[in-house]
Design a protein around this nucleic acid. Structure first.
Length: 295
DNA sequence: GTCCAGGCAAGCA
DNA sequence: TGCTTGCATGGA
């Protein structure tokens, strides 16, 4: 990913440190921020610049966590950043409880990826990004999400732009959406936006549901099927038990466990049963391992 | 040119 | 209920 020359970093605060209970290497930090969970981070000379919700930060690797800074004058993002990155370490404990001791295939996927974690994104952000995701490569999703922010989003600190609101998307002209390279997904996004516009509480109203029911309710939205619903539950609602099965995970389960001929629903049930309450975290290790190519 | 991508929804048996 | 097909677009 090339460095983005348009971002003005003159007016930024001094660097500060955020300790992570489970530190990460530079490579794993890149995998976390730009490995197919969020599509909002770009490489900078020191690390990564991006937005999470309405907040903007620059992150860089540090021995015991991350260095970070933010645009001057914006509200302090430290508390939100600590939550976004699971600084407290709940996922490190969840990862240790995965069955890697008895599962060599999972152990191999986790090897060298200590500290890989699920970002705690906002539900709206995860939903919009994964509405874009169907039948697209990660690099192309990144382009679509960037176009949506650039064309339809409000300005944020640091010269970045927010993702558009559902209200904005609901009244966007067809041509404007098509210009975002959404293809046939444009209609799904428009229709979901029309359902959610004027309902800022939609996510809060679902937040108390058990994961299976949450996914079923998400799947009532246009353009949201089982896989996208699982991604939104995992990345947007912090449900570590959600287990999205895409082409990579499909391939991983066939390769690792000999599940040839199983359909996506069967594979999802296998994942939930085999990996347990943090199956979604296991999924992220497998996804990273498969995409990085043969070891 | 061909195949495939962090799939979904409609049509069909 | 479960499988097949069309869908827009761009990378590999």
């Amino acid at each position: 990913m090339p460095v983005d020359p348009d971002i003005d970093r003159a007016g930024w605060t001094a660097w500060r440190e955020l300790a992570l209970a489970e530190p990460v290497s530079a490579e794993v930090l890149g995998e976390i921020l730009d490995g197919g969970q969020s599509f909002r981070w770009r490489r900078s000379p020191d690390g990564w610049v991006g937005a999470f919700g309405p907040r903007v930060a620059e992150l860089a690797p540090a021995p015991r966590g991350v260095r970070w800074r933010q645009p001057r004058g914006a509200p302090d993002v430290e508390v939100a950043l600590a939550r976004y990155l699971d600084a407290e370490g709940a996922q490190a404990r969840a990862a240790d409880a995965l069955p890697w001791r008895s599962d060599a295939f999972l152990a191999r996927a986790m090897e060298g990826r200590r500290g890989l974690r699920i970002l705690r994104q906002e539900p709206d952000e995860a939903l919009l990004a994964f509405l874009c995701s169907s039948n697209k490569q990660v690099a192309q999703i990144r382009v679509m999400v960037a176009e949506l922010a650039d064309r339809l989003g409000e300005p944020l600190a640091g010269g970045l732009r927010a993702l558009p609101t559902w209200e904005r998307l609901a009244r966007a002209p067809e041509a404007e959406l098509r210009a975002c390279r959404l293809g046939y997904r444009a209609a799904f996004i428009r229709d979901t936006a029309r359902r959610l516009a004027g309902r800022p509480d939609w996510a809060a109203a679902l937040a108390g549901l058990p994961t299976a029911e949450l996914e079923a309710r998400l799947a009532e939205l246009p353009g949201v099927g089982p896989k996208v619903a699982a991604c939104v539950a995992l990345f947007g609602f912090g449900r570590l038990d959600a287990f999205p099965v895409d082409t990579w995970i499909d391939q991983a389960l066939v390769e690792g466990y000999g599940l040839d001929g199983w359909n996506r629903r069967q594979l999802a049930r296998f994942g939930a049963a085999h990996y347990g309450p943090a199956a979604g975290l296991a999924q992220q290790f497998l996804f990273a391992a498969m995409r990085s190519g043969p070891a």
